[in-house]
Simulated assay, not measured.
Amino acid sequence: MTKILLIEDDQKAARLLKRGLQEEDFAVDAVHSAEDGEPAALTGNYDLIVLDWMLPAKDGITLCGELRARGLTTPILMLTARDGLGDRIAGLDTGADDYLTKPFAFDELLARIRALLRRSTLTQPPQLKVADLTLEPQSHVVKRAGQVLDLTPKEYAILELLMRQAGHVVSRQQLAERIWTADLIAIDNLMDAHMRNLRRKLDPVGMPRLIHTVRGQGFRLAEAADDDA
Rank of each mutant, 00 (worst) to 15 (best):
residue 148 V to D: 05
residue 180 W to M: 13
residue 73 T to H: 10
residue 218 G to Q: 06
residue 51 L to F: 11
residue 83 D to R: 13
residue 123 T to W: 09
residue 63 L to A: 04
residue 125 P to H: 12
residue 111 A to M: 15
residue 4 I to K: 05
residue 101 T to A: 11
residue 109 L to F: 07
residue 24 E to Y: 00
residue 157 A to G: 02
residue 116 L to N: 08
residue 3 K to C: 07
residue 182 A to G: 09
residue 39 P to H: 10
residue 117 L to Y: 15
residue 61 I to G: 07
residue 70 R to F: 07
residue 163 M to T: 05
residue 228 D to C: 07
residue 20 G to H: 04
residue 61 I to R: 15
residue 99 Y to G: 05
residue 182 A to H: 14
residue 198 L to K: 09
residue 45 N to K: 10
residue 21 L to F: 06
residue 32 H to N: 14
residue 12 K to W: 06
residue 45 N to C: 10
residue 186 A to H: 14
residue 141 V to H: 10
residue 161 L to Q: 01
residue 156 Y to D: 01
residue 215 R to W: 00
residue 60 G to K: 04
residue 121 T to K: 08
residue 32 H to L: 04
residue 136 E to Y: 04
residue 53 W to Q: 07
residue 54 M to V: 07
residue 39 P to K: 13
residue 146 G to D: 03
residue 101 T to M: 08
residue 69 A to L: 10
residue 47 D to E: 08
residue 126 P to T: 11
residue 163 M to H: 03
residue 24 E to N: 11
residue 5 L to N: 13
residue 44 G to K: 08
residue 227 D to T: 03
residue 221 L to Y: 01
residue 144 R to K: 02
residue 80 T to L: 00
residue 167 G to L: 03
residue 212 H to M: 01
residue 29 D to F: 05
residue 2 T to H: 07
residue 9 D to S: 10
residue 2 T to N: 13
residue 192 D to R: 14
residue 29 D to E: 15
residue 210 L to W: 01
residue 45 N to H: 11
residue 10 D to Y: 05
residue 199 R to K: 15
residue 216 G to H: 01
residue 127 Q to N: 06
residue 102 K to E: 05
residue 57 A to T: 13
